[in-house]
């Protein structure tokens, strides 16, 4: 089992109700899951817990059978470097690095930089002409492609995408989404996609809906 959540509960300090309540969930390698729900339903929180960006109050979050809960900051950082890749709605590129450096960045951090693979990714994502540019010189769609390339370059086992097309227009969103699914499928990694777009969610093999902190 690639990912396994058991009875995960999370309450933000000061909030009355838990944002996640006894969530249990399994995901196999190669499986693609769409997570939908209204704003505040806890889908981003679930993603953050899975990616080690945040910690659960109770329950177990295990990747490849290893529980993340007891990990300290360096341990969780190591997880984000190698095993899990996160794609953000805001792209979160490093503005002072070129496109090429941004794409290579996480793979270098993880010590898994492979020029051939990076080259393949840039070609597939149509970024070949933009390698010397800086993020601010790119359109939103292009920036998200750079972020996808950066995330996939170290070959993570699990890709977490938080509204990756939320800042893009519909046509661009479709193209980027298709590319993402295609590339993830090629690596055999698992994918959890958080979106509020029913249209995009419908295109993935498995769908879960969050409401008031519980899966329905």
């Amino acid at each position: 089992m690639l990912l396994s959540l058991r009875d995960v509960t999370k309450t933000y300090p000061g909030a009355e109700a838990p944002v996640l309540q006894r969530i249990s969930l399994d995901l196999h390698a190669g499986e693609m899951l769409a997570l939908t729900g209204e704003s505040g339903s806890g889908k981003s929180t679930l993603l953050h817990l899975t990616g080690g960006l945040d910690t659960a109050d109770r329950g177990i979050v295990a990747i490849d059978g290893t529980d993340l809960t007891p990990l300290d900051d360096p341990g969780r950082a190591a997880l984000r470097r190698g095993t899990v890749g996160v794609i953000f709605q805001q792209f979160n590129l490093i503005p002072s690095l070129t496109v090429a450096a941004n794409i290579a960045f996480q793979a270098r951090l993880a010590g898994r930089y492979n020029p051939d693979r990076v080259q393949r990714l840039t070609t597939r994502l149509g970024l070949g002409d933009h390698l010397g540019k800086y993020p601010e010189q790119l359109s939103g769609g292009q920036q998200q492609r750079v972020a996808i390339a950066r995330t996939l370059a170290p070959q993570p086992r699990l890709v977490l995408a938080d509204e990756p097309t939320g800042n893009l227009d519909e046509a661009t969103a479709d193209t980027v989404f298709a590319l993402l699914c295609e590339l993830v499928a090629e690596t055999g990694a698992g994918l959890i996609l958080v979106t509020h777009s029913e249209r995009l969610a419908a295109r993935l093999g498995r769908r879960l809906h969050l409401r008031a902190g519980q899966l329905t």
Partner: peptide, 16 residues
């Protein structure tokens, strides 16, 4: 500050 956040999200340990 934004860069620091991104770096951490990409897996750079805080202490380092």
């Amino acid at each position: 500050r934004p860069m620091v956040r991104t770096l951490r999200a990409l897996g750079v340990p805080l202490r380092r």
